[in-house]
């Protein structure tokens, strides 16, 4: 059973699934190259970022929920970890700028809807699921902290 994805993530999943295996890896590599660099405030204060040890290579992320309840995502992963960067970039392209509710509605198993299991291995995909879980947890934590007592 698949749960509905937001239109942007759905489009990304459709793109991946519409192409043969080799091209899917190439698309993942393109995502990897498109991951936005960290803004200065995070680059200078690295401890504001949360590590994601479930990824096989070092990955750090930060989540901001602005007063309009819009989510902004920030990631950092080294160039020698292109798969991890690709996963982060998919999440950025699919979720950054959506509302907190829309991000929270992303099904945890969406990583299995990209058609990458056989190419990338389920083990490696678990890193992306962990990023999503941590993003959602940060959104919930921030909401709880800003809720009126």
């Amino acid at each position: 059973m698949t749960t509905a994805l937001n239109p942007r993530l759905q489009e990304i999943a459709d793109d991946f699934n519409s192409m043969p295996g080799k091209d899917r890896l190439q698309l993942l590599l393109e995502f990897s190259g498109e991951l936005p660099a960290l803004p200065g405030r995070y680059a200078e204060q690295h401890d504001l970022l949360e590590p994601v040890p479930e990824c096989q290579s070092p990955l750090f992320l930060a989540v901001e929920v602005d007063p309009n309840s819009v989510v902004h995502l920030f990631f950092e992963a080294p160039p020698e970890a292109p798969t991890t960067r690709g996963f982060a970039s998919i999440l950025h392209a699919g979720l950054d700028g959506l509302t907190a509710d829309e991000v929270l509605a992303t099904p945890a198993e969406f990583t299995s809807q990209l058609g990458l299991q056989d190419l990338v291995s389920p083990l490696r995909l678990r890193g992306m699921a962990a990023m999503l879980a941590r993003i959602k947890r940060q959104i919930r934590d921030q909401r709880a902290a800003s809720a009126p007592a």
Binding site: L25, Q26, L28, L29, S32, Q56, S57, P79, E80, A81, P82, T83, T84, G86, L119, V120, S121, R124
Partner: peptide, 9 residues
């Protein structure tokens, strides 16, 4: 490699 895309880079 460990990273499945590193070769492609």
């Amino acid at each position: 490699d460990e990273d499945v895309l590193l070769y492609e880079t």
